[in-house]
Design a protein around this nucleic acid. Structure first.
Length: 481
RNA sequence: GGCGGCGUACCCAAGUGGCAAGGGAGCAGUCUGCAAAACUGCCAUCCAGCGGUUCGAAUCCGCUCGCCGCCUCCA
């Protein structure tokens, strides 16, 4: 089956045919490292993580790069505020970003270039653009001339004249055209700088991605991803300067852009003060619930982060682990056995086919939940009839499908013990205290003092802890809220 | 103003020409000291509205209404 994907450049769904059959070069815009990463960064990272995982799952040899923008005005400003060197600040937030990504089970890209490590390439590309007449130098700044490229605007569907009538661009009299953008900026005193043919300076924003792509992946690549907001001006400019520099088009064969995460129907923004950092989200929710929430809608759609949506996701994750728990109690050897891959090839193809249609993770998730219902039904049936005939295979097949899907979705890949330990670590009451109260309550139950027993249960429930009695004893868990 | 997108049950969300996936909530049943949890079952003759194309449309086309994003170095 051919993979189809929506290409922002053509605004159409296209068959995916990498320029070298079987091999994929893929670049995704990473964070500017001057603050903690938020849930929007998580969405981009998780979306492209599942995409690159799926391409590998389908047998492509993938070379995947995601950069860190570690030199930028915002970094410099923040560093000055804190009185630390910009590079030190950047390194700190690179570490924080890596930690957040690891927590979300985002695989490490093959290559993680930093802008500051490609300065030489940036200078070379900038120089060649000047030589070709596509860029010009003024007082140590170098600008790209948008009028020099006749198809400027092809990604965002804009044309230069329309943009200028919008007139929201900085008016810099020195520039030939208000839309011309900086490739190289002369450094001001106290700013980090590198020596260049145009004096001491530092790179502009857009040029770094071009340089890193060329340095690590090649002059043209198969897939380039990022948030929707990057379409203009960032990716538009990247195309212009890259194609002008190499004379090769298209610079990127397939452009993929993920949608935004809103918070309670509002755009996340500094001014609204509703930025949700990844690590704050992880205080209340398991990484798996966050990941499921992100993968439960299509990567290009906007999604709304609310308390309810995360609670729903957490309940759904729990449904999976409860089902596995049930299987392990009633048919323990199913979990240990290796499932028969070839027996379920058809089922796998069917369950995963939505991924081939522009990476529709949401539909695959739906298919996995069908498997869970199937397993529970089989278990019920076995219990009711006393016959275990065929049940083992049924369970093994369903679990096999989920296990395979977890390879590219990055969810449902733990044991129930690991999941519940993770979830219960959020308890508001120390575990020893809970255990003590459970014992006290069981004493009361033994003495038929149900009033006392119920009072203890109520007390814990008010603190978000749920007690469940079963034949094997009383267990507790953090209530999903 | 220019460009792009969206509108599917109580909520979230797939489906883009052939009888409307899935999750959450709700209700019922099983279970239980009572519960809770879990599981099972039920839950849109209908896809913002109006026209059109078609044997057949939530899916294609046109118009209307409503919402959102980008055009500010915000993923």
């Amino acid at each position: 089956m051919t993979i189809k994907l929506y290409n922002s450049l053509t605004r159409k769904k296209e068959d995916f045919e990498p320029s070298t059959p079987g091999k994929v070069t893929m670049y995704v815009c990473g964070p500017t490292v001057y603050a903690l990463s938020h849930i929007g960064h998580a969405r981009s990272a998780v979306s492209f993580d599942s995409i690159q995982r799926f391409l590998r799952y389908r047998g492509f040899e993938v070379k995947y790069a995601r950069n860190y923008t570690d030199v930028d005005d915002k970094i410099i400003n923040k560093a000055n505020e804190e009185g630390v060197p910009p590079q030190e600040l950047a390194e700190r937030f690179i570490k924080a970003f890596d930690d957040d990504m690891a927590a979300l089970h985002v695989q490490l890209p093959d290559i993680r270039p930093k802008a500051t490590e490609s300065i030489e390439k940036i200078i070379n590309v900038t120089g060649s653009l000047i030589k070709k007449g596509a860029a010009y130098e003024i007082d140590g700044d170098v600008y790209y001339s948008v009028r020099s490229k006749k198809d400027y605007g092809k990604l965002s569907g804009k044309n230069i004249d329309d943009l200028e009538s919008g007139a929201r661009v900085d008016v810099d009299e020195r520039k030939k055209d208000p839309l011309d953008f900086a490739l190289w900026k002369a450094s001001k005193p106290g700013e980090p700088f590198w020596e260049s043919p145009w004096g001491k300076g530092r790179p502009g924003w857009h040029i770094e991605c071009t340089a890193m792509v060329m340095e690590w992946l090649g002059e043209t690549i198969d897939i380039h991803g990022g948030g929707k907001d990057l379409i203009f001006p960032h990716h538009e400019n990247e195309i212009a300067q890259s194609e002008a520099a190499t004379g090769k088009a298209p610079y990127v064969k397939y452009w993929l852009h993920n949608g935004f995460v809103n918070i309670e129907k509002e755009k996340m923004s500094k001014s609204l003060g509703n930025i949700l950092n990844i690590r704050d989200a992880l205080v209340d929710h398991t990484a798996e619930a966050i990941r499921l929430f992100l993968l439960s809608s299509h990567y290009r759609s906007p999604i709304d982060y609310t308390r309810e949506s995360l609670r729903d996701a957490e309940s759904a994750v729990e449904r999976f682990y409860k089902t596995v728990q049930r299987v392990s109690e009633e048919f323990p050897n199913v979990l240990e056995a290796e499932f028969c891959h070839s027996c379920i090839q058809d089922k796998l193809d069917e369950a995963f086919s939505p991924m081939e249609d522009d990476f529709n993770t949401a539909e695959v998730v739906g298919n996995l939940f069908k498997e869970m219902t199937r397993m529970n039904k089989a278990l019920d049936e076995a219990k009711a009839t006393g016959s275990r005939k065929g049940v083992w295979e049924e369970l093994s097949y369903s679990l096999g499908i989920i296990k395979e899907a977890s390879k590219f979705l990055g969810i449902f890949d733990r044991t129930p013990e690991e999941y519940f330990k993770d979830k219960n670590s959020r308890a508001a009451v120390p575990a020893e205290e809970v255990e003590r109260l459970i014992n006290e309550r069981n004493e009361a139950r033994k003495n038929k003092d149900f009033a006392r027993a119920d009072a203890i249960r109520k007390e814990l429930l008010d603190k978000g802890i749920l007690l469940e009695d079963s034949a094997k004893g009383t267990t507790w868990s953090v209530k999903t809220q």
